[in-house]
Design a protein around this nucleic acid. Structure first.
Length: 284
DNA sequence: ATTTTCCCCTGCCGGC
DNA sequence: TGCCGGCAGGGGAAAA
């Protein structure tokens, strides 16, 4: 599932290839992609526009047009955005929209489960900021994002720490897979109340999140089943996962069998001995 | 105000 | 063999 590293991988590939290009035509195959707007309105806002920059906010991919206008794309669960130098030989399965560029290149948005969306962002900078506020929190890889900011956000929440780091308003871009990996690296049980974490633990988790996201970007993201990068290729990060999807296998650190549970309505993988539910006491 | 539940959507898989 | 319930999960709306 595309999380921050996957979206960032696609962003970098597209930025290299479509920056400065003009969108000659957009075709919406599945009207639901444009909801709650109509496909006609979306196409009218996109057609003929020049892409000045390809940016990212959390898991949102953004094409910046002149005059502050911007198209946001969200891949959700199974969305794929695929650039090709020319038209595809045949439409990819589950095609929902396609874009023709002025250099003959094509981009297709396909999406088996149809959760993905495309919509226009507010052009006014203040309105844009309002749009993100409350919806998408700080960028975990931003230089300015300190451990203190993270600690503050975590300390005043009582829910399970995994639910807190999955909350996009708390920290942008972390999904189920990297939440599991970061909590394992920080040796923190996902059901620990966020506010119960010590200063050291919060610092460790902040570092672990940033580390896992960076390593994942370096590996081109994780292709569990649906994810492909902007050129249709698989990532390599799935081979670096330590606990996620490793139920029944030995923990890479202590050889204890990894277990799968359910936390915050999400499948959750942990090492019961590296991630004690009650730190300080022995065992789990 | 925060936290939890439900919903969307389709393919896949285990059980009977 | 084939059907069917359950599961997968991002994010947002609704409910608690």
């Amino acid at each position: 599932m595309p999380e921050l590293p996957e979206v960032e991988t696609i962003r970098a590939q597209l930025a290299e290839r479509i920056t400065g290009r003009t969108i000659r035509e957009m075709e919406v195959v599945d009207a639901k992609l444009a909801e709650p707007a109509t496909p006609e309105a979306l196409v009218a806002a996109v057609r003929g526009r020049r892409i000045d920059a390809v940016t990212r906010r959390g898991k949102y991919l953004i094409w910046e047009f002149p005059d502050g206008d911007a198209l946001a794309l969200h891949l959700r669960m199974t969305g794929r955005l695929h650039w090709r130098p020319g038209p595809p030989e045949e439409p990819p399965p589950f095609l929902r929209a396609s874009f023709d560029l002025d250099d003959g290149a094509t981009m297709t948005f396909s999406d088996l489960r149809r959760f993905g969306r495309a919509w226009m962002l507010p052009a006014d900078p203040a309105d844009r900021e309002d749009y993100w506020r409350g919806r998408v929190g700080p960028e975990p890889l931003a230089r300015s994002y300190s451990g203190r900011d993270f600690a503050q956000a975590v300390a005043r929440r009582s829910g399970p720490v995994k639910a807190v780091i999955l909350n996009q308003a708390v920290i942008a871009g972390v999904g189920n897979m990297y939440a599991d990996e970061a909590l394992f690296q920080a040796r923190i049980h996902p059901e620990r109340p966020a506010s119960s974490l010590s200063d050291d633990e919060t610092k460790l988790l902040h570092r672990a999140i940033r580390d896992r996201l960076r390593v994942a970007i370096a590996h081109g993201g994780a292709s569990i089943d649906d994810y492909r990068d902007g050129l249709g290729n698989k990532g390599q990060m799935q081979e670096q996962l330590r606990v996620h999807l490793h139920e029944g296998e030995p923990c890479p650190r202590c050889r204890t069998t990894i277990v799968k549970t359910r936390v915050a309505q999400r499948g959750t993988y942990t090492c019961p001995s590296c991630q004690p539910r009650h730190p300080g006491r022995s065992g789990s």
